[in-house]
Design a protein around this nucleic acid. Structure first.
Length: 232
DNA sequence: CTCCCGTTAC
DNA sequence: GTAACGGGAG
């Protein structure tokens, strides 16, 4: 049993089980008709998802979509990326900014090819060895490419958990144990990939950082932070 | 805690 | 016009 699974089973003192159950069922229903469609959501290819997660870091999904297609056309395999000219990769990433990612992508490709597996690692530990892959990206790849029950915590998920459950994370959400634990607690053991996408999309479409659309939110009824003024 | 950096919301 | 946005690494 993994740590995360053990924690889920024992429950989280901060989160009431009944409220967690309601949270899940509301979101599962919402996901049926509201999940967004992106090219990287139509594949389970570990390399494709590795590229996608790198490009999606601190970058809006709608901005990434066209570049992602071009990237995979130009560098269709780990081998081609490992052999790529970093400057050229950086040029391709131009509309996204954060050019240091070009170097990290190429370097990761070389590390992966020199590893025992020779393919994208299928463990959190293995993925974390790669430059540019932190806990969020590692778990996203585990869930999406390898169907593992790996919950993610990004600023969207953190915001939803903080608002709905009233838990308080620190400044740096990505390294906040309370929020990671909450993310693990609310996650489902099955279809964790879809669950992760559900939270990301609720954060992107409804529970936005500014001007959240509380009136359209499936969680409004039990949300600690629901903006009741939005009814008026 | 700071830097990275283009895009989008305001 | 400016500020907000968003993961990882040093």
């Amino acid at each position: 049993m993994t740590n995360a699974t053990a924690k889920r089973k024992n429950g989280n003192k901060l989160l009431k089980p009944a409220k967690v159950a309601w949270f899940r069922s509301q979101l599962v229903a919402w996901a049926d008709t509201h999940l967004r469609d992106f090219p990287w959501r139509r594949t389970r290819d570990p390399y494709h998802l590795f590229v996608a997660e790198c490009l999606l870091q601190k970058t809006d999904a709608t901005t990434v979509a066209p570049i992602y297609e071009t990237f995979l056309t130009r560098y269709p395999t780990l081998e081609t990326l490992a052999a790529a000219n970093v400057e050229e990769v950086a040029r391709l990433l131009q509309p996204l900014g954060l050019f240091f990612r070009a170097e990290r992508l190429c370097k990761s490709a070389r590390i992966i090819l020199n590893s025992d597996r020779g393919t994208i690692p299928n463990s959190e530990k293995g993925l974390l060895q790669l430059p540019g892959i932190g806990k969020y990206s590692a778990r996203a790849i585990l869930a999406n490419a390898f169907s593992q029950p790996a919950a993610v915590l990004d600023t969207n998920v953190a915001r939803i958990l903080e608002r709905f459950f009233g838990v308080k994370g620190g400044r740096v959400k990505s390294r906040c144990p309370v929020l990671w634990e909450a993310a693990d607690t609310v996650a489902r053991d099955r279809d964790t990939d879809k669950w992760n996408l559900t939270l990301l999309d609720l954060g992107a479409l409804i529970c936005t950082a500014r001007n959240p659309r509380c009136a359209q939110c499936p969680l409004q009824e039990q949300c600690q932070s629901a903006d009741f003024l939005s009814f008026c």
